[in-house]
């Protein structure tokens, strides 16, 4: 190190790793890598769409099935008998029935619990309940499936003789219990995002807590609440292990909750569990069902997103 004219030690020489050229090069490389990471998620979506479209196209390319039969048919028996029928409606009906039962349990209970947590409960209690809800939302769905099969079904059978070993009610209730923490947690988030000033104004004109929650806070948070509900519905539609364990495997067009039904996810599980040879029509029907499922959940997500963006109220 040389001494500068003033007698002070000079600054250390600027090394190679500090040259602006290298810095810029490293910056470019890093940003390039990050962009690759970001593109990966786009690639995932594109691959999902391409795979589902291609395999569904080869499903409809077969002689046994036409697009019209698939969309309008009311009979689904790809495995049994000589005459195979591929009408999607029994599967959609099964999915709908289970979703309706599940949401009939989860949405009202979840909404009321969320209102209570956000508007009435003591902050300490809320601080305890919130993490517990997060843990409960992480319980694997196979656990709820097991619960439905070994606990809910025997209880239902005890209540009424008509329930079979596999029935839509049991699976639907289990799906409802599974989505309950999700609905509660997300709805509570939406309610808490409403600014305090609105509540205080409402109390200021003499409203009770009930009137404040129902007439001020819930309408103000409505977009968030609806988005949470749609997310829960999407989860219920895509739920697999519960319905595979508890709903049975008879694809039929019914709205009787005592019957066994087969939702779309249940059919996919039945297909991959059995020894279906790889390039038969049954194998391709799996992709057609998966594509229908994908379209349904995709629409739900998009509608939820639109609602959240379109009807969001901005508060200071």
């Amino acid at each position: 190190m040389s001494q500068s004219p003033l007698g002070l030690p000079s600054l250390p020489p600027i090394g190679l790793n500090r040259s602006s050229g290298l810095r810029r090069a490293r910056e470019t490389v890093v940003i390039g890598t990050l962009i690759c990471c970001g593109l990966f998620s786009l690639l995932t979506t594109v691959t999902i769409i391409v795979v589902l479209t291609k395999e569904t196209a080869s499903f409809f390319g077969r002689d046994e099935v036409t697009v019209l039969d698939f969309i309008t048919g009311t009979e689904w028996n790809p495995l049994l008998g000589n005459e195979k029928h591929f009408g999607i409606w029994p599967l959609i009906c099964g999915t709908m029935l289970i979703t309706v039962i599940a949401m009939g349990l989860a949405l009202p209970l979840g909404l009321i619990t969320a209102i209570w947590l956000s508007e009435y409960a003591h902050p300490t209690l809320r601080a305890v309940v919130k993490p517990v809800l997060e843990v409960l939302a992480g319980i694997p769905t196979v656990v709820f499936g097991f619960f439905a099969l070994t606990v809910i079904t025997p209880n239902l059978k005890w209540l009424h003789e008509g329930f079979g070993v596999y029935n839509a009610m049991s699976a639907g209730l289990a799906v409802g219990i599974m989505t309950l923490p999700i609905v509660t947690s997300l709805t509570e988030d939406a309610l808490r995002a409403v600014p305090k000033s609105l509540r205080e104004a409402s109390y200021g004109v003499g409203a009770t807590r009930f009137e404040t929650s129902i007439k001020v806070v819930v309408p103000a948070a409505l977009s968030g609440i609806v988005a949470a509900f749609l997310l829960a519905i999407a989860r219920a539609v895509g739920e697999t292990m519960i319905v595979a364990l508890a709903a049975g495997s008879t694809a039929q067009l019914t709205i009787n909750p005592q019957d066994s039904v087969q939702p779309m996810t249940g059919f996919i599980v039945q297909m991959v569990k059995g020894d279906v040879s790889n390039f038969d029509i049954e194998y391709y029907s799996l992709y057609a069902v998966a594509a229908t499922l994908f379209i349904m959940t995709f629409l739900l997500t998009v509608v939820g997103h639109k609602i959240r963006v379109r009807f969001r109220q901005e508060y200071q």
């Binding site: 895509g238 739920e239 697999t240 499922l293 995709f298 739900l300």
Partner: peptide, 8 residues
């Protein structure tokens, strides 16, 4: 992507 069912 977060909303796509895991079986898909």
């Amino acid at each position: 992507l977060a909303g796509v069912p895991s079986i898909v």
